[in-house]
Amino acid sequence: MKLLLVLIAAVVLTVVLGQTAWQILAQPTPVDLRELVAEAMPDSGVAHPITAVLLNFRSYDTLLEIGVLVVAGMAGLSMRAVAPLEAPAMRTSDTLLQALLRWFVPFLLVLSAYLLWAGSDRSGGAFQAGAVLGATGVLLRLGGVPLDFLRPGLMLRLGLVLGFAVFLLVAVMGAIRGDMFLAYPQEWAGLLIVVIEAALTLSIAMVLVGLFAVAPAQATERDWPSREGKR
């Protein structure tokens, strides 16, 4: 009964969504955002349109986005399991993984730095760089490398809020100078964007690694002794 109802609902949703999408595609777009972006590009401080949108034209969205990430990271930390970071289960003696780590980690770090730097004039930027850096951290963690900065403490907190803090500081500085909130001074725009992006990269990576590291490790039987008969 539930199956039938849900299937009907899903089909209705698909048909209505499809019809709407079709009508939107058939209409000409009322405002051409491409032209607006292209016109404003010289003022943005960077040469890549997506970076310009992310960190200049729509930087308010990006500020809120990194805020959401920090909240997610903190929520994850509050769920922190009791298992220590160096749980025996986490330590691997896989020689292949250890050997690969030696090759991959420097490569991934360089790749991440490249992506960050490339963001100003071609594809790349803080998000991709943060993703690669986060993946590097997860790889290290899987290889059993003790990542001391992931312990609860100053380093972890600083790393989590760095991106948001730098972004907010720049935003408020603009307001104090008499501009609008989040408006960059024209001649500093390029530099400020790179600084914000670097901080964002670190924070995004920190949130991702942190959320991976705080996931409760293997459950033991004594965690839920009354489990028999529930499945």
């Binding site: 992506l115 993703a131 993946a135 991702l208 991976f212």
Partner: peptide, 19 residues
């Protein structure tokens, strides 16, 4: 959308898979 492709390859396939 090469930017999204980069992010999706690193996040969608890599990190999500590991998690």
């Amino acid at each position: 959308a090469p930017d999204i492709a980069l992010a999706e390859a690193a996040l969608g396939a890599g990190l999500t898979g590991v998690l």
